[in-house]
Amino acid sequence: MAKAAVKRVALLLATLLLVTLLAYAAFSVIPGDPTHTILGLDATEEQIAALRKELGLDLPVWQRYVNWLTDFLHGDLGKSYKFNMPVADLLAPRVQATLTLTAVSFALIVVISIPLGIVAARFRGGFVDRAITVLTQVTMSIPNFIMGIGVMFLFALVLHIFQPTYVSPEAGLAAHLWFMFFPALAVALPKSAMAVRLLRGAILGELDKDYVRTAYSKGNATGAVLRRHVLRNAMIPVVTFLAMTIADIVAASIVVEQVFTIPGLGQMLITCIGKRDYAVVQAIVVILAVVVVGCNFLADALYRVMDPRIDGR
């Protein structure tokens, strides 16, 4: 087991290294020299050469990658030429907003999908099940940003439950979370619909298995069969799905941040793509890529913990 775990972690590190390498490479092939951007087109040869040396651009590519990675690991994410400040300082306050949005969304998905999935499976074929099926089918078809516009229109403009302007944590944690609840809803609803269907299907699949018959034969009531036996088995694919979903939530956050004008990583990413501030784009891409790889690792690890049949390989 321990050996297998070490191997997994080694694989994780290798993947992370590869991902950072790709991200670095992708942004190294951009045509155009950053020296022109900084010094302007009428800079002298000497000025350019001096700046290139200062920026380390005269080194071979692999060395530049190693330097960049070392800096990155030390928290030096480069310098934004457009904002004229270190990328790390630029991103730090924005990471919090995105993190909160992601966390609230994830919590909503869990809270919405697990009870609904169980209820739908428990009353399979009944009115409630059918209603849930129709509802999830429709909800799944709504892109996050449209859901965001819908939530904004309904709750902010019609019902006036919240103000559609960003409330930062400085204004109070409760107010901040109350505001974040609405964009999180837009992120969470379509994903929840998928999770509901997955869980319902998984439970129904498990109910057909032989061990369920055994459980009934021992005198378990239906609720006990679900609770004690079926749920743990049915949750294995769902937990894996939920862990992988975090990556999708982050992607959806980017779009929804735009709808609700939340100053998060996503909004920064879009702004900097527009401004062609590649140092910032690169840093955000690397951060998001690490999140995605981490989520996949987490999903895999959870799967192994939950299913005793998977031996450490």
Binding site: T15, A23, A26, A247, A251, L269, V281, V292
Partner: peptide
């Protein structure tokens, strides 16, 4: 597998940034 692990909007953003 590696590419499919990433949300497609995220990767597309990177490509479009370039």
């Amino acid at each position: 597998d590696a590419i499919a692990a990433f949300p497609s909007v995220l990767l597309a953003l990177v490509v479009m940034a370039l």
